[in-house]
């Protein structure tokens, strides 16, 4: 474990806590894409198939459980919670994400570390996570003004993978034969997708103005 990876995991956890706070405090999920939340639930369930077979550390197992449980809880809230579900922007959250799932799985069948069920699903989860934010970014562009907690949620979610890129660079330089091409290349693509959001987030922070993404 290095400082970059710890910072990445903590930033990821923070993004989830901010999202839970927004939903709990405002009893609303307006501005949140349910499709992105569902994609993340699939990402975590596909990535952590080794949850019960490979014990790495208490920290690793604990965080995997947190990620799976929180993503499922958020999807449940947005679908079934009597108050929260009413504020879901159903007519704005229309990204056809089936293609993202299909393309990611097809790529995982072609490019993986090893052709086993666990490794193909692991690669699938890596590719899917890289594009999982797209429905959320499209929703932000359509929904005009973005509330602070939603903006912070997306910001931390984008920042965590940037920390992971620093972690991979650090490990590549300090550990012999360390390579994570699948995660590394996907991580760069994932972080690049946030580029314009980061730009407008920085502008809104600098001008102390409301975050607004151009349509």
């Amino acid at each position: 474990m290095n400082i970059f990876r710890l910072a990445g995991d903590m930033t990821h956890l923070l993004s989830i806590l901010v999202l839970l706070l927004k939903i709990y405090a405002t009893k609303s999920c307006s501005g949140i894409s349910r499709k992105t939340q569902e994609l993340y639930a699939i990402v975590f369930m596909a990535r952590y198939l080794d949850l019960f077979t490979d014990f790495i550390s208490v920290y690793n197992t604990f965080m995997k459980l947190i990620f799976i449980a929180s993503s499922l809880a958020i999807v449940w809230c947005m679908r079934f919670h009597p108050v929260v579900r009413r504020s879901y922007d159903r007519e704005l959250d229309t990204f056809r994400y089936f293609f993202l799932v299909g393309a990611s799985f097809a790529l995982a069948l072609v490019w993986h570390d090893k052709f086993t069920l666990q490794e193909v699903f692991w690669a699938f989860s890596i590719y899917l996570e890289a594009v999982a934010i797209l429905p959320q970014l499209v929703l932000l562009q359509r929904s005009g003004n973005v509330d602070n907690l939603t903006g912070q949620y997306v910001f931390f979610l984008g920042a965590y993978r940037a920390f992971y890129i620093l972690n991979w660079i650090y490990r590549y330089m300090t550990e012999p034969r360390f390579t994570r091409w699948i995660a590394g290349i996907s991580g760069v693509v994932q972080t690049a997708l946030y580029a314009d959001f980061f730009y407008y987030y920085f502008i809104s922070w600098k001008n102390n103005s409301k975050l607004k993404l151009p349509a």
């Binding site: 995991d9 990821h12 490979d54 965080m63 995997k64 570390d113 390579t179 994570r180």
Partner: peptide, 10 residues
């Protein structure tokens, strides 16, 4: 376990 297939990261 060799390096690649040991997913020690989240």
């Amino acid at each position: 376990l060799n390096n690649i297939l040991y997913h020690d990261e989240l």
